[in-house]
Design a protein around this nucleic acid. Structure first.
Lengths: 122, 122
DNA sequence: CAAGGACATCGACATGCGTACATGTTGACA
DNA sequence: TGTCAACATGTACGCATGTCGATGTCCTTG
């Protein structure tokens, strides 16, 4: 119950959108990642984590600045990112550090890679 | 009223997530694109459009196969993609052709580009 | 001009999602 | 052991969203 079996499934079958029509299963998996990222708060959180020193950030130390939200709300958003397999959670003492999962980031990069506008400039 | 002023705004300021914490405004704009894509049906539609010959596809000719949805539902999803600035609409006679907008696709590619796991392999 | 097809739009309904408050859990420290 | 701080979880509320049937609009064809 600790790891969802579908978490890695989408990553494995992640192909460029423009290569061929993706399968309903892949669409389901990928949309789960994108849904987690399709929120202004979570997008900023993800960017803050990614651009933070060491590629990881402490929840209440580094990730509260600039937000006018209740702590529980921030925690909820981080959980959504974690459940989607986008970030790893590492509890060190009292603080919790979040780090981006390179597999997930790579999958998203792959998704939008390739010649997405091939016949445009030609 | 034909073009939303915010449509191009997000594209202009689209920087890699890992470069620096994105601004709330950029997060708002980018999330609008991702929200449009964060649905299995629309993801498949986008992939079908991108991978179709010529980079464009006819709504009822090419984009209904494989879906068990009412035509109005498909039309709605295509409208969402269009409103988000992800596809262009071109009515030719009775048929409507949808084509991916290269600016939007490029923005998404930029978003997930860069070293998203810098201290990982080093 | 009439009929039909290819869409888009309009309610309407069920579900999902963002937010906050209250509460629970865990670890550091006196 | 008791207290406080850093979270996570549960519940609840309001709004957004996916879906559909019905209707409207535009173009083609007879």
């Amino acid at each position: 119950m600790s790891l969802l079996p579908t978490r890695n499934a989408a990553l494995r079958y992640c192909t460029p959108l423009a290569r061929e029509p993706i399968s309903p299963e892949q669409a389901e998996g990928v949309s789960r990642m994108l849904k987690a990222l399709a929120d202004p708060v979570r997008l900023r959180l993800m960017s803050m984590i990614l651009s933070h020193e060491g590629g990881e950030a402490c929840a209440m130390c580094d990730l509260t600045e600039g937000f006018d939200l209740a702590p529980s709300t921030l925690s909820h958003h981080l959980k959504v990112l974690h459940d989607a397999g986008l970030v790893d959670r590492d509890k060190r003492g009292v603080w919790v550090y979040y780090k981006a999962r390179s597999e997930a980031m790579g999958a998203l990069r792959t998704l939008f890679s390739g010649d997405l506008a091939a016949p445009q400039s030609a």
